[in-house]
Design a protein around this nucleic acid. Structure first.
Lengths: 229, 229
DNA sequence: CTCGTTTTGTTCTCGCGTTCACAAACTCCT
DNA sequence: AGGAGTTTGTGAACGCGAGAACAAAACGAG
């Protein structure tokens, strides 16, 4: 007996409605990859694809792909495959990228510039509504069509635009303060590029991207290769 | 270098070959985090720390931290904790960041700029030896003290400098071609920022960082929060 | 209609990673 | 010196995710 007891306490408030299926975190992380692969297939003119095709395009195992998609529902046709456009819409809806997500970016250094200009955001429903920086020297700049404003404008912008997602691209020392201010004014999801561990209250999601950590992981494996050779 | 540190006490279990010590991948991914936390503690003047302290600084569970460190050896003292500098050196050596790692970056757009200027690389043994771009318009630029050179110089630079790690910051369409060229001239570790699935031969490590995927994962959770509210 | 082919959706099993819990080992105080 | 108090290192339990394997469903040919 697999005790599939979705312990009431763990899921807490998320048990209402039947759209509240809980998709495994590992699957959630792959859905955007599938979405991108489907978009790529659609642009190539493909109308229908098998799980093998899509798995190849996404760089995963086909069994894993089918299992991932099964968490969303039965959107395929046995013996045929998946309708590219239909599946793409279903995944997009599940992730939430059919909506418009206003985003603020704090810290307009090199990385902030790159993020503000990154086209992959806009094309997936993310709209950069504000660029903020504490340095007054930057307040004249216009980056990617958005002008840089003082960090103290955060509260008003978040309130006016209904921002729920914030991006931190500041130096490490400023990151926690920025996060605190973000949380205080209602932001509940933070993407952190600063190399520091953020502490946030329950209910706020933080994802961290650390460029140098990725290189260090590669270096470890590289070192191993060199040793055994 | 590679002093084989055969943990004087627990010999016998691991005498099978040098590279035979297999550290779990999940642990490898956390070692850089511990390294950064230790550096931070050291800068704050801390000489010794317990697993609780370090775990808090790294944002993980203390049991997990101890188990992770146990894969490296017995570097702590029961009843006391870990010597910050000593542990820091041991982790750095294990990851390989005590060495010098020459790195080439291909694609000097917004992101390439940010990467070239990122101080977190240099401070961890990564030395950007070349910036390459296919666009001749960029070949005059000097970014972060390194001048941008034609992509066709790749082979010679890799050979001259003994480069093993390459970073791809090009548009998606160019990424596979760049990867192929890198692999052909001997690069065995690739950090890919382009939103495309790279196919590389066995023995080449690829890590992918996708900025928009991270945001999409946040959007999914954000949507769930909104539904239950 | 029936059979064979294709491909999905799901079940089962296995291995990895996380966490708990505790003995071993070390320091400090009396 | 001995006991009390800490803290590490690790064995064991547990839960989750990956992959293999297969039954169910759709389609087409005859």
């Amino acid at each position: 007996m697999t005790a599939r007891t979705t312990s009431a306490k763990t899921l807490g408030a998320r048990t209402l409605g039947e759209g509240a299926r809980d998709i495994p975190e590992a699957t959630v992380a792959r859905l955007p990859v599938y979405l991108r692969a489907l978009t790529s297939l659609a642009e190539a003119g493909t109308r229908t694809c098998s799980s093998e095709d899509l798995a190849a395009a996404a760089g995963v195992n086909s069994a894993k792909l089918r299992k991932d998609l099964s968490y969303l529902g039965s959107y395929g046709t046995r013996g045929v495959g998946y309708d590219v456009d239909y599946l793409r819409y279903q995944i997009a809806r599940e992730i939430g990228v059919t909506q418009d997500w206003p985003v603020v970016i704090v810290g307009i250094g090199n990385l902030g510039h790159a993020l503000a200009n990154y086209s992959g955001f806009r094309s997936r429903g993310f709209r950069v509504v504000a660029l903020l920086d504490a340095d007054p020297e930057r307040h004249d700049e216009v980056v990617a069509g958005v002008d840089v404003r003082p960090f103290d404008d955060l509260e008003q912008i978040v309130a006016d635009q209904g921002v729920a997602i914030g991006v931190i691209a500041t130096p490490a020392l400023a990151a926690q303060d920025v996060a605190d201010r973000m949380v205080a004014c209602g932001i509940t999801s933070i993407l952190n590029f600063a190399p520091s561990v953020l502490s946030v209250p329950e209910g706020v999601d933080v994802r961290k991207v650390d460029l140098s950590i990725e290189l260090q992981i590669l270096a470890y494996h590289e070192q191993r290769k060199a040793q055994t050779a």
